[in-house]
Design a protein around this nucleic acid. Structure first.
Lengths: 246, 246
DNA sequence: CGAACCCTTGACAGAAATCAACTAAGGTGG
DNA sequence: CCACCTTAGTTGATTTCTGTCAAGGGTTCG
């Protein structure tokens, strides 16, 4: 591992509060690796040998059953994945693949568990991160069960506008087929629903989203702090700080 | 708190590995309380002042949005709830109400956080429990996104039969309306779907479930370890041990 | 006995998936 | 540079699934 990587990682909220000794122990056997686009690096059902920390790029977590597949989450830097499986030493419930070329830190599960025992600061950072992941899935499940597809789309797009700094227009951060899967619908349905939302203050042209009438759109989206955030995970918190410039 | 309660709690996997000193500190300010049936003790959006540990009875976790409501989980002894909110000191994402008269232990969040810092065994038990909760929600979300209602019903009923010891017949553990909500459909739809499954090896008479043709039914259920368990949470582990008599 | 409440059933409307065809954009190789 | 191929996205027609509304049967409980 390059020394510059080590210095960078040390600053992550996960490791910030560790004693130097534990940190050195932890990062023994850690390495940072580049993955090309569209590479499935974790397959559901496999053991979780490493905690993955995304430093650069984008990773999709997805789940399959038979020949069906659905996107569960999209990880952006700095974000972790398969933390729970690592802690439990249990098989991964989700698969992971890169959406673009990505730089990922691999932290052996044994090291993680050791550091969890040895360092209180780290233990706290881990449990905080995991609690954040838990709450994110609960939100996702709530959205799936309480909103119909139209409402899920509207709330997703409104929320993205909020996160971008309450803008009226922005670029979709992911492909539409992926978004459709994440929102639990087919690509065809997303396409049609977007068209249908033009009468409710939304315009989508290619990857460009334009909220023409926020009030009207909000009547459908009905954003809810308990379903649409905030409550960032500690690692993503740092990444989304730029928005605080307003 | 009664001394017998204290002794009982000490044996829970959450507290088993704690030092006596930390345990005494932790349980200072803890109390055990009885709640009548159908009492909503936690409302989503409220702060999480206590970790709840269900000792006896049954508790429903549910979520609402506008005038809609859905069952997210049913807790049985011994089980914890609102752990993540407690750890993060964040508002609860779900509400909780008793399904029957219940005995619940209330552990002040401040005590929990203190004990997490002071006792490694406890810290590990907490993170293990939380990881289990996370994996349970991931499973729930996968089920909602990857299976249709017919398949969700079949897999739920098959899984219950498995848990009861691979029996062919058993009693539904919850009301049908609740089950419908948990499985993400209306009560009417559940009723119709159950009827429809009679041609696939299932018979339901009142609260009695009879699997007349396990092989046929399994072709619909397609139980999957990554969606239907196992992977019990550490606290529920003790509760489901009886099944290990085989 | 009446009043809830749970469950079921039927008829219908609306939502969403599927199948098929078509466009547009991007990349490849000649 | 262009012909070709792949892929994302769109659109329409159709079927399937699911929710809604309304009514009725059965239970429990005061």
């Amino acid at each position: 591992m390059r020394p510059t990587d080590l210095a960078e990682i040390r600053r992550l909220s996960l490791f910030r509060d560790m004693s130097q000794q534990c940190y050195e122990q932890l990062t023994r056997g850690v390495y940072v690796q580049h993955f090309p686009e569209s590479l499935t690096m974790i397959r559901q059902g496999e053991p979780a040998d490493f905690l993955h920390i995304l430093l650069d790029g984008q990773v999709e977590l997805f789940a399959s059953w038979g020949d069906r597949e659905t996107t569960m989450s999209v990880i952006k830097p700095i974000g972790t994945f398969i933390l729970a499986a690592t802690i439990r030493d249990a098989p991964c419930l989700m698969s992971a693949r890169t959406l673009e070329r990505s730089r990922i830190m691999l932290l052996p599960s044994a090291n993680l568990r050791q550091a969890f025992r040895d360092d209180r600061g780290f233990a706290h950072a881990i449990v905080d991160e995991l609690a954040g992941c838990y709450r994110a899935v609960v939100r996702h499940a709530k959205g799936m069960k309480l909103r119909n597809s139209r409402e899920r789309i509207a709330s997703y797009l409104m929320r993205q506008a909020q996160l971008a700094g309450d803008v009226r227009s922005y670029q979709l951060p992911v492909e539409k087929r992926l978004l459709a899967s994440y929102l639990g619908m087919t690509a065809e349905n997303l396409s049609r629903a977007l068209r249908g939302l033009e009468e409710d203050g939304l315009k989508v042209d290619g990857t460009r989203v334009i909220i023409t009438d926020p009030i009207k759109l909000m009547k459908i989206a009905k954003l809810d702090m308990l379903m649409d955030g905030p409550d960032p995970s500690p690692t993503t918190e740092a990444a989304s700080l730029p928005k605080a410039t307003a």
